[in-house]
Design a protein around this nucleic acid. Structure first.
Lengths: 328, 328
DNA sequence: AAAACCTCTGAAAACCGTTTCAATTTGGCG
DNA sequence: CGCCAAATTGAAACGGTTTTCAGAGGTTTT
């Protein structure tokens, strides 16, 4: 910057002001400075800026990101969320720091904040990290979480209306005449718990007598979901005629298992998924599902987080949640 | 750091040395410093460090990332790659900066480098950005690209052996007795071009007479691929009995279209995809595909890039490429 | 006992911007 | 023409770390 200053025959602060668009600098001077900077390929050092400003304009995004090694697979849905967040952050001139998958220690996150590596956090998925998130937010970390609302609002949560999603799925299945309904998912995840609750409540309010069962599904991958399903069904007294799976990916695995066992979908069994992931309409059968507006969700999370970083208050919010019927 | 120094009754440089694990500091002194730091929740300022070191330990990752708005969808395969890269970077203590989706301007990337925002780049997918990548690499930017090798090796490319992948697909189809083979994809993408080449060469070397056709597919989404397929097939003289699609997602859309038109897959038509994305075995029919070791690819890209950043030379490399047969 | 050598520590400079504050110039107005 | 305000600029300090270099104290060698 010193060199630019000399070449433009001004002082360093003036160069700084010219480049940062300060109104305190004369228009002609600015032109001169910009010309020199452009010509000599000068770019301000972002680290010096961050150091001085005590602000990094960087947001850490943490995905409940399951590496291949552990035979986990991340849901395409998360990718959709990430795309939304990425675009929204880009629009706000914020950098997106994707945290390493195995960083699930509150200390690691706090370190990032303390060392001024990032200004705030977006957690995509609560997973089983609720305790960690509670602790972290108790430390006053600026953060927004995709997931399900908690009893006490510790941090800002954006998510779909899981109870409503469950109800929509339930109503659909009941309208289809299904009376032996299976829920697939791991209700120790908060989001999934509420989806199940919604499903149950719609069954209770339907006036019909519904047989309700539940299939735990932990440690998700297509393969393990499929195998769990096969072994579950082989031990079950009766096969369900309606299934609500916590995600489209799970629905796909379940459908595969049902077909393997000779059930026709959707003729014998109706299956509802969640997320409306790309391609869910191209599965056979096309998957009836609950859509969440992931793109808006990204924008919403980012705008909330920016507010929080600026010291303003915001509340958790729920995203539009609708049933997409695919009957063919 | 000054405060820590005072509390530990040493000077600032000593604190710095203690925290960075320098051997120049006495063991007892180090203990004292670490204790004070821990107790007072002190963390070194990463930005000051980066400023001083002229090294950020941050790698920019650019995805040919297609936002929802443009009705594009990113292939789950890219997510797999990203997961691999993320884990590998984490192991090397490098931060991963995910660039905004619309950043496709070499100037933007150069700015990131010049302003010392990042040390290097990983581009996941060449897409239609080859010119940009050439320009950027000509500026001496440290970078590694996932994609297909070019004639002249301008930058380090990691990718599958696309020609071989195409050959494997072709051999499979021909062995299945297919003689009317369709390639689906946009050969203006380098990777896809070579896959097609491989397919053709296996057809030519087979000794049988193969009718070969080609369906352009630009601007991918499931929906548009499906529609293109429907309109292509309705105008074609004959329907193919073998299809090689440039990706599993495209294969899924094509299969959907073929079924719609009353063809049975795999009885009437054999379809081969590419990537072995999660769930490709759970589609109906399960998708025969070409697998690439994405996880190793991530590690390889990162290790290559680290070498390049350290001023060492490396060469492009090809990842294991194998056919996964799913006939059921 | 002097010389040579380690080991450990601290002062000062460097990294590269931005901000504060004071100074200079210019313009407006009576 | 003199005075005041506004516009523009620059000197110096600051943000937080690391590195260079020199020095203090202790140990070993001759």
């Amino acid at each position: 910057m010193d060199e630019v200053a000399i070449l433009a025959k001004v002082s360093k602060p003036t160069v700084s002001r010219a480049l940062s668009g300060s109104p305190l600098v004369n228009a002609k001077t600015r032109e001169r400075v910009l010309a020199v900077a452009r010509e000599h390929g000068y770019a301000v050092n972002r680290n010096a800026q961050k150091l001085r400003h005590k602000r990094t304009n960087t947001i850490a995004v943490s995905i409940d990101f399951l590496s291949h090694r552990q035979n986990h697979v991340s849901d395409p849905f998360v990718f959709e969320l990430l795309a939304g967040v990425s675009e929204a952050l880009g629009n706000q001139n914020q950098d997106l720091l994707l945290t390493a998958p195995n960083h699930n220690d509150p200390d690691v996150f706090q370190q990032m904040l303390l060392s001024r590596g990032v200004d705030g956090f977006i957690f995509l998925g609560q997973g089983h990290r609720e305790d960690m998130l509670d602790k972290f937010s108790a430390l006053g970390a600026p953060m927004v979480v995709w997931g399900a609302k908690r009893k006490k609002e510790a941090y800002c949560v954006i998510g779909s209306d899981n109870v409503r999603g469950g109800e929509l799925a339930g109503q659909y299945l009941i309208e289809k005449g299904r009376r032996n309904i299976l829920f697939v998912g791991d209700p120790s995840h908060n989001e999934i718990y509420w989806r199940m609750k919604g499903l149950k409540s719609s069954a209770e309010n339907s006036g019909s007598s519904i047989h309700f069962s539940e299939m735990q599904l932990s440690n998700f991958s297509y393969e393990s979901a499929y195998e769990s399903a096969i072994s579950y069904f082989s031990e079950a007294e009766s096969l369900p005629d309606g299934v609500f799976a916590y995600s489209d990916t799970a629905a796909m695995a379940i459908i595969h298992a049902l077909k393997k066992l000779g059930r026709r979908v959707p003729e014998d069994v109706s299956v509802v998924g969640y997320n409306d992931i790309p391609g869910s309409g191209f599965f056979s059968p096309a998957i009836t599902t609950i859509r969440q507006e992931t793109f808006l969700a990204g924008e919403l999370m980012v705008s909330k987080l920016m507010k929080i970083i600026d010291g303003k208050k915001t509340k958790s919010e729920t995203i539009k949640t609708e049933l997409i019927i695919r009957d063919t």
